[in-house]
């Protein structure tokens, strides 16, 4: 092997042929309202934690649905479970439980 001073870049695109959406499926089973999200971002717009951190629930639930699980757990742990996101969701998603369920499946997955 030769070191040329650079490596072959890894792709950062979402590869739905390779990614598994199993974890999202688990969340959908335990919290069916998760399925009704339309990605409007109301939750993120009102998020108390999101004002001071990079926490973005809209994006986290989307990435889980696409099987992109790398950073979700670390991000979701910033949530303070205040419940404001539940109040604003136009589709009645139980966002608070979605966060807890996402954390649960991710912890089990990482173990």
């Amino acid at each position: 092997m030769t070191d040329f001073g650079y490596t072959i870049n890894k792709s950062h695109r979402i590869d739905l042929d390779a990614n598994s959406t199993l974890l999202a499926e688990k969340v959908r089973l335990s919290e069916p309202s998760f399925k009704a999200c339309i990605g409007c971002g109301s939750c993120t717009g009102t998020c108390t934690a999101g004002r001071f951190t990079q926490l973005n629930l809209r994006k986290m639930q989307l990435l889980l649905s696409r099987g992109e699980t790398a950073y979700i757990k670390k991000e979701l742990e910033k949530c303070m479970l205040c419940g404001k996101c539940m109040l604003v969701c136009p589709r009645g998603v139980n966002t608070r439980n979605v966060i807890l369920e996402m954390l649960r499946v991710l912890s089990n997955h990482n173990d």
Binding site: F4, Y6, I8, S11
Partner: peptide, 14 residues
């Protein structure tokens, strides 16, 4: 630019 070559070769590999 040498620092960008990892990007160049990644396209070829794809």
């Amino acid at each position: 630019v040498k620092a960008n070559r990892g990007y160049s070769i990644a396209n070829t590999k794809k």
